[in-house]
Design a protein around this nucleic acid. Structure first.
Lengths: 244, 244
DNA sequence: CCACGACAAGAGCGGTGCTCTCATTTTTGT
DNA sequence: ACAAAAATGAGAGCACCGCTCTTGTCGTGG
């Protein structure tokens, strides 16, 4: 009788920690699944990611996997969120690693290059998030926070540059003003409308450059891709009005 | 006896034309397969395109389809080539439809808008060619001719603008010069290196803008996408040095 | 201590891409 | 003109896929 009490106690304190062994195991298995899936993703690409193969590799039967992810798409969604976060973190770290007084242009270029570097290191994950997310599909709310990290960082850089008077941009054509004002109001009210609009455009263009490099469109066209990219994103910085 | 001769004769002249009935049938069935595949692509996206479903819809058995396309990937490649051509044709027509003395900037914007319009009309086909073509994959030689059409058109516009002295761009930073010269030499020897390099960057950036719109990255960010796009590609034109 | 709920395992369903064999039909060489 | 050769279609079958359902086991909370 005392033994059984001991066992119960152990289950909810010593061995299991605060959550109990089961909750702990669930968490561990969940990340194991994601890790293995990410591994297969990096090798074969998203199209060939197979729940059965993941399960097989983990020594479990495929149906067991559905206790952790209700479908293959849900697994992919989880990988997407992780990828956004991984990329966002890389970008933020690149910015944070800069010496304190770094100029806005320097920060902008550093962040862009960090994004590129992340993409080069994780091409399939990049394809997963910026490739072809089924046209018509809108990301679940849980992803948008992670997805926005790089964008928010770029906004912050430009905002700070703005506040110290290091952003100048010619005024907008009349027909483009209203939408620019809308964008600025939604995205960064502190920014002049023409800067906010230019920033959104530059943001998209950055991923155009990177996508072309990663997806082979630059094959036999651009060779020295690092210098080409740096040159292009420097001009992008000028395009949003960053002057130093 | 005369009947058998007649039948033979018909087979190689009247009914079959110069090529024989079989070659003709092969051609027709090939396009029928591609049409049906394109139909399914437009509905469900590339991931769900299924040879069996195509065969079923065409009233043939799935194995018969392999007489026309050796694999699902080959079918997709054929669709890719057609998509590039369709898009290239749309762009070329938009340029050709302009009044004769249209300025380079006007032509540039018109071509970009035509590309956008094509993408909006064929989102899944756009995703097929500019989405995620398996990182590491290099397009078969047959596709590059079709893939280059829009690019060549943009080059032509800039070249003509250049010849009439309507292109000016600040000189390049030293470290970016060699690669710019390489690009110019390979792509358009008539163009100044800084223009050629800027053109390649603008080309990629155009697809960044379009991809973000088509793939939902602009959801809840940009609303008036047509005016935003036109504004952005106008600035892209300025970025390659087009002045009017 | 026990009933409940989380879990792993297995069988199974309908689908996929692709291969192989076999009969039929067209083309082609003599 | 006829037989050999090549092209085509049909069908069965293999291995794999995502996903569901049932069954038995084992932590866990009342």
């Amino acid at each position: 009788m005392s033994t059984s009490r001991d066992r119960t106690a152990r289950a909810t304190s010593a061995a299991g920690g605060i959550q109990g062994v089961r909750a702990r195991a669930r968490q561990e298995i969940t990340v194991a699944i994601k890790d293995e899936a990410r591994r297969q993703l990096a090798v074969d690409g998203a199209a060939k990611l197979s729940l059965r193969a993941v399960a097989r590799e983990l020594g479990m039967v495929s149906s067991a996997l559905y206790r952790y992810f209700p479908s293959r798409d849900e697994l992919l969604t989880a990988l997407i969120v992780d990828a956004y976060d991984s990329m966002g973190e890389a970008a933020e770290r690149a910015d944070a690693d800069l010496p304190n007084g770094a100029s806005p242009v320097t920060r902008w270029v550093a962040v862009c290059c960090a994004v590129r570097q992340w993409g080069l290191t994780h091409p399939h994950e990049y394809a997963l998030i910026y490739g072809s997310p089924v046209p018509g599909y809108t990301a679940p709310t849980t992803t948008i926070r992670s997805a926005a990290r790089v964008g928010l960082l770029l906004i912050a850089i430009v905002r700070e540059a703005c506040e110290s008077g290091r952003v100048t941009l010619p005024p907008l054509a009349d027909e483009a003003r209203p939408e620019a004002e809308r964008i600025a109001a939604d995205l960064a009210p502190e920014l002049p409308p023409e800067v906010a609009a230019a920033l959104v455009a530059a943001w998209a263009q950055l991923y155009g450059l990177l996508g072309f490099e990663l997806f082979g469109q630059f094959n036999r066209v651009v060779e020295e891709r690092a210098v080409f990219f740096e040159q292009a994103v420097t001009r992008l910085a000028q395009g949003v009005g960053l002057t130093e």
